[in-house]
Write a protein that binds this DNA or RNA. Structure first.
Length: 580
RNA sequence: GCGCCCGUAGCUCAGCCGGAUAGAGCAGCUGCCUUCUAAGCAGCGGGUCGCGGGUUCGAAUCCUGCCGGGCGCGCCA
């Protein structure tokens, strides 16, 4: 409970109760950061209104009942009735010291852990991931890591596209080129080329197209020979994904893959139950549910098609079966779908139907964590088909190349071996790309600008990495491990105070990300911490401090900062090199 | 037509569970390396928060109507 906002919240609530009666204890004290002090309480203004008394008078009375001894100086009333709090330097120092001793850095374990399914990444098998998949993968992984750390039971769920009509084509093509051929190996290394070849043949060769259609039927009827080939296709694709995820430091494994095919044998039942409940009706030969409140172009009800006219099922049915599975079998009481925002309406309707059917209880929170479009510098969407999409492999290679180029120009790199340098370049390049994706609000579309993404300045991954390596460098020079720094922290210089105070907010930020599934808030926080640290670094000599106590205190402050930055970057999945 | 999202400094974006003078990075300008990595620090300039109403003691933030842009909307996923 180091977060000053929470500490003061509790104190002011006590004072509200004491001053105005128990029923006022539940009032939100409205503690906010202040530009006139450290924090301010705004509660006196609405309360004055409610009591019919001048807000300044209410504020004064509140202060009279307020016990903040040892935490801050005597609160003051200013303006129309704001209560300003200035925290005591000693309190800040003490709390920061407690943080150093706290393995969880002020982040409480969830009192009531929830089972949370995080669906993310979800690429299509046999297609190379592009920047759009990159974003859902990176953001989803950060969300999963944060929820994990907060103490929830997280189930990572990679809902890959591994089923449907294209697979007839892909399997036939795999047969044609031969399972052990170089052509088949493209699935591991360059799946787009494999897919494109199959597609081209499908479009040009009627005989192949016919075979492909027959293959789809065999696939969906579970023909053993076809299933074996499908498994082979999947294994090659898993190998591709393993490589990408390893390079990206994404925590997804083969075990997290639960693709569309997984729900195949639940589809008929799902549709049948909807019909039996009277929710689904026949419409133009298709079986549809019309959830209330959704209308289309002409004010006509919008359907969720659960069975096509030809009797086949589509992705709506799969998504409904998925909801049921997550609730019934996984016991999920929260599910976060990290999926493109263009599917917003689809998920609204799926969740609405699932609620209607009683499959999604009110106690379960199923959320669509919308991911905005990735745009080109021309403001248009980056598209796969137009040929102007940046291939993921090219993107990552360029990231590493640029990182390496910058490292090579630095003097400090000269003393490092080539392997070390390559490893650092990878950390920096991958970190830059991931951080760029994480640091803007996930639901806003963002312009993919290579120079900005790879930029090593400002609110970027490398800037944060750099801050951590500077701290590590201090410890190296001192011949100490950061765990050796345990002296009482002192807060005397302004830069020390600003830094220490901000470090106390780590728990609050994690709580916020946990709640909103918005990792960019953590990025913003870490950038503040890193900025405050570099200011401290410039203004407050550590190893060359005037006296031994100051030196030890500053080393301890460095250690807390290091731990917060490392933990935060770890939760974002951004690697942290030892030196840069 | 309906749904979701967006419109904040020259550019890219935060802030939006209402609070006192709207923040950051980049770009521009000025300083700072005999002292722990200058991938840095200190500072300056730069904004009708798309427009109009409404609610409120108080609106970038909430409601509403426009304007402009993006995405989606019946048998692809």
């Amino acid at each position: 409970m180091a977060d000053p906002q929470q500490v003061l919240d509790a104190r002011v609530r006590d004072a509200l109760g004491a001053a105005f009666g128990a029923e006022y204890r539940g009032l939100d004290p409205l503690i906010r950061p202040s530009s006139f002090a450290d924090l301010q309480a705004n509660v006196a203004l609405p309360l004055g209104k409610r009591l019919g008394r001048p807000p300044r008078e209410v504020a004064a009375e509140l202060i009279g009942h307020l016990d903040v001894g040892g935490i801050c100086a005597e609160p003051t009333v200013s303006g129309p009735g704001f209560i300003n709090f200035t925290l005591l330097d000693d309190w800040i120092a003490g709390e920061a010291g407690d943080l150093l001793a706290d393995p969880r850095l002020g982040v409480p374990l969830a009192a009531e852990p929830r089972t949370v399914v995080v669906e993310y990444s979800s690429p299509n098998i046999a297609k190379e991931m592009h920047v759009g998949h990159l974003r859902t993968t990176i953001v989803g992984d950060a969300i999963a890591r944060v929820l994990d750390f907060a103490g929830h039971h997280v189930i990572r769920d990679n809902h890959v596209g591994d089923w449907g009509t294209p697979f007839g084509m892909l399997i036939e093509h795999l047969l044609d080129v031969g399972e052990e051929s170089a052509g088949a190996q493209l699935l591991r290394t360059d799946p787009n080329t494999f897919y494109a070849a199959a597609r081209a043949k499908f479009d040009a060769d009627p005989e192949f197209a016919g075979r492909s259609r027959e293959r789809v039927v065999k696939l969906q009827s579970g023909d053993p020979a076809t299933m074996r080939l499908w498994d082979e296709l999947m294994e090659l694709s898993r190998a591709y994904l393993r490589g990408i995820y390893r390079l990206l430091r994404v925590t997804l494994t083969d075990d997290d893959i639960r693709g569309e095919s997984f729900y195949n044998d639940m589809l008929a039942d799902t549709a049948a139950e909807l019909i039996a409940m009277g929710l689904a009706t026949d419409s133009d030969g298709a079986t549809c549910v019309f959830p209330p409140g959704f209308t289309g172009r002409d004010g006509t009800p919008l359907p969720v098609i659960i069975r096509k006219r030809d009797g086949g099922y589509n992705y709506s049915t799969t998504d409904l079966a998925t909801v049921r599975y997550r609730v019934d079998k996984l016991n999920a009481d929260r599910a976060i779908y990290v999926v493109g925002s263009e599917q917003a309406l689809h998920f609204q309707m799926i969740f609405a139907v699932a609620r209607l059917a009683g499959w999604l209880p009110d106690t379960a929170s199923f959320e669509h964590a919308k991911i905005g479009l990735v745009l080109g510098t021309d403001g248009n969407r980056l598209r796969t088909r137009e040929g102007d999409t940046i291939k993921l492999s090219d993107l990552l290679a360029e990231g590493l190349g640029r990182a390496r180029g910058i490292l090579d120009e630095l003097e400090t790199s000269a003393e490092l071996g080539p392997q070390t340098l390559a490893a650092i370049a990878e950390d920096v390049g991958i970190g830059a790309i991931k951080y760029a994706d994480l640091s803007t609000a996930r639901d806003s579309g963002y312009v993919f600008d290579w120079d900005r993404m790879i930029s090593f300045r400002g609110n970027t991954g490398p800037y944060l990495q750099y801050a951590t390596t500077r701290i590590l460098s201090i410890f190296r020079k001192a011949g100490l491990a950061e765990t050796d720094a345990g002296a009482p922290i002192q807060v005397t210089a302004p830069a020390e105070r600003d830094l220490a105070l901000r470090l106390l907010g780590f728990g609050a930020v994690i709580a916020q990300v946990e709640q909103t599934a918005e990792p960019h808030r953590l990025c913003a926080y870490l950038f503040e911490v890193a900025s405050l640290f570099t200011a401290f670094y410039e203004h407050c000599p550590v190893l060359k401090a005037g006296d031994e106590a100051t030196r030890a205190a500053r080393l301890a402050l460095c250690a807390v900062t290091l731990r917060v930055l490392r933990a935060g970057l770890g939760l974002l999945g951004v690697p942290v090199p030892e030196r840069m």
